[in-house]
Design a protein around this nucleic acid. Structure first.
Lengths: 256, 256
DNA sequence: TCGGTTGCTAACCGGGCGGTCAGAAATGAG
DNA sequence: CTCATTTCTGACCGCCCGGTTAGCAACCGA
C-alpha cells in the first residue's frame, strides 16, 4: 500500500557495515555509525537484520560457500590434470618441460581464482583475521585455514611420492607456509588503492613454490610485477537521502 | 612495615592475563576473569597496573624491542657474511656449493632466533594478529610486519643484482610471502602442545625459499621433520591462595 | 599488646552501546 | 482531501564492564 521501503537501504547498510567492520572490527563497529553512514537511524538497522552478528554472518557464510565451491573445483581440476597429463617429475621441473609448464599454468589458473575470491571478500577476510577473536566467527576462518593446509599437505605428499617434491620437508609445514602467505596477501589487499595484477601474483607464487627464488636459467625475463587491471577500492558510504528529512523534532503529541 | 605484598601477585596476574588475552582477545578479556584466575579480586589488578591496556602494552613493548634487537642483529649478521664470504650466485645454489650451504646455514641460524622469539611471545603475537583490531596496538604488529617485508624486499633485491634470485619476481610480493608464512606459523604455535623443532622449521623454510619444493639431487635425505626439543605449553593459571579468606562480610561500620 | 602501615576486598558508579518501541512521516487508495 | 498502512525515527531501557574507593584484614615493629 503505502510508503514503499527504500530499495537501496539494505545494500547501503551492508556496504557501510563492511567498511565499518574493516575499520573497527566486529566488536568495535557501532550500529549507529553504520546507519549514520547511510543517512539512516539506528532503528532502521533492525528492519533489515536481527543483530550486528547476523549481518556479518551473512557475509561470512557467502564467503565460506564460495571457498567450499572453489576448493572442490580445485581438487577436481588437479585430479583431472593428473589423470590426463600425468605427474611431472623433478626432471620436468629442472628442465622446465612442457608438462611442467602446463602444470604451473593449471595451478596458477586455480590460484588466480582463489586470489579473485580473496579480493572480492578482502574486507571480510581481513576482519576475520584481525578482529574475530572471541566471537562466534573465530573458528570460521581458522577452520578454513586448517582445511586448506590439509589440502596442500595432501598435494605435497602426492608430489613427494611422484618425486616432484623434496621428501625431507614436512608437508604440514609446507601447507602452513603457503596458506600463511596467502593470508597476509589477503590482508594487504585491504590497504591497496588499486587492484593488483592477481595473475602475476599467482604465477609468481607458483614458481617460487616449485623453483625457489633462484632463476634456473638466464632466460629473457618478463618485466617485474606491476599493477595492470584497474578498479577502485569499493566504497559506498552514504547513498540516498530521498525524503525530506526536516528536523524531526518531536512536537507535543497529536494523536491520543 | 606491614603486610608485604604477595610477591607472586604481579607475575600471576601477567600470566593469567596472557592466557585470558589469548582466549578472548584484548577487548574480550575481562579484568574480573583475570583476577579470579589468580584468586584475587578486581581491585587488586589496579595495584599493579593502571589499565588493562597498560599490562598488554608492557608485553607488546618487550616483544617489539626484542624484535628490533633481532632485526638489527640480523642485518649486521648478513652484512658481515657477505663482506667475509661474498655473495652466492645462482650456480652456487644449483650446485649446492659450500658457499651456498654456509649461506643457508647462516640464514637458518638467524631464522631460528626469530622463531624462538616468536615462540616465547606466541600468545602475544597471536593476540596482535587476531584480536588487536580497533585498539591502540593494531599498528604495532602491522608496522613490524611492514618493516620486515621491507627488509626482506631489500635482501631480495640484493640477491637479484648478484644473480642469486629471479629478477622477474616482485620483491615486495616475495617479502609478503615470507612474512605471511611466519605469521601463520607464529599463530599456530599457540595451539601446539609441545614445542616443535624450530631448527628444522628454519632450515626447511630457507631451503624452500631458495630451492623451491623440488629436490635438486636425490642425495641421502635427512629424516622428515619431527619434534625433538621438549617443553610444556606455558600455562600458570592460578597459583597462590595464601591468606585466610574468611567471608569478608561487611558488618556495620566500626570506625567513624 | 597495640599502633601504624600497607594489601586487598567488594560494593559502587558511570559511560557506552545493543536492542526496543511509541509515534511521526511518507505514501497510495478511494 | 482523508484515511489506512507501512517505513523510519530517536528517545529510552538495561546490561555489561572498566575503573574507584571506603573500609577491613594482615602484618611489622616496639
Amino acid at each position: 500500500m503505502a510508503r514503499p521501503a527504500d530499495p537501496h537501504a539494505r545494500a547501503a547498510l551492508i556496504a557501510a557495515a563492511r567498511a565499518e567492520f574493516a575499520r573497527k572490527g566486529l566488536k568495535g563497529a557501532r550500529i549507529e555509525d553504520i546507519t549514520a553512514a547511510c543517512g539512516l537511524s539506528k532503528g532502521a538497522f533492525y528492519l533489515h537484520f536481527d543483530t550486528k552478528e547476523a549481518l556479518f554472518g551473512e557475509l561470512v557464510t557467502a564467503f565460506q560457500s564460495s571457498m567450499a565451491d572453489m576448493s572442490t573445483r580445485r581438487v577436481e581440476g588437479m585430479q583431472r590434470f593428473h589423470r590426463e597429463e600425468g605427474h611431472p617429475t623433478v626432471q620436468d621441473v629442472a628442465t622446465r618441460s612442457p608438462l611442467y609448464l602446463r602444470f604451473i599454468q593449471a595451478e596458477s589458473a586455480l590460484d588466480l581464482e582463489l586470489l579473485e575470491l580473496l579480493w572480492a571478500y578482502r574486507d571480510v577476510v581481513s576482519v576475520l583475521i584481525r578482529g574475530s577473536q572471541g566471537t562466534e566467527f573465530e573458528s570460521s576462518l581458522w577452520g578454513l585455514v586448517d582445511q586448506e593446509v590439509a589440502r596442500i599437505s595432501r598435494e605435497y605428499r602426492n608430489m613427494q611420492v611422484s618425486c616432484m617434491a623434496d621428501s625431507s620437508h614436512d608437508p604440514e609445514l609446507f601447507g602452513s607456509f603457503i596458506v600463511g602467505a596467502y593470508l597476509l596477501l589477503a590482508k594487504q589487499m585491504c590497504t591497496m588503492r588499486r587492484k593488483p595484477d592477481l595473475a602475476v601474483w599467482a604465477s609468481s607464487v607458483q614458481r617460487i613454490i616449485h623453483e625457489g627464488a633462484a632463476p634456473r636459467e638466464p632466460l629473457p625475463v618478463s618485466p617485474p610485477a606491476l599493477p595492470a587491471a584497474a578498479r577502485v577500492p569499493s566504497r559506498k558510504p552514504s547513498s540516498r537521502r530521498p525524503q525530506a528529512r526536516a528536523s524531526t523534532r518531536r512536537s507535543p503529541r497529536k494523536r491520543s
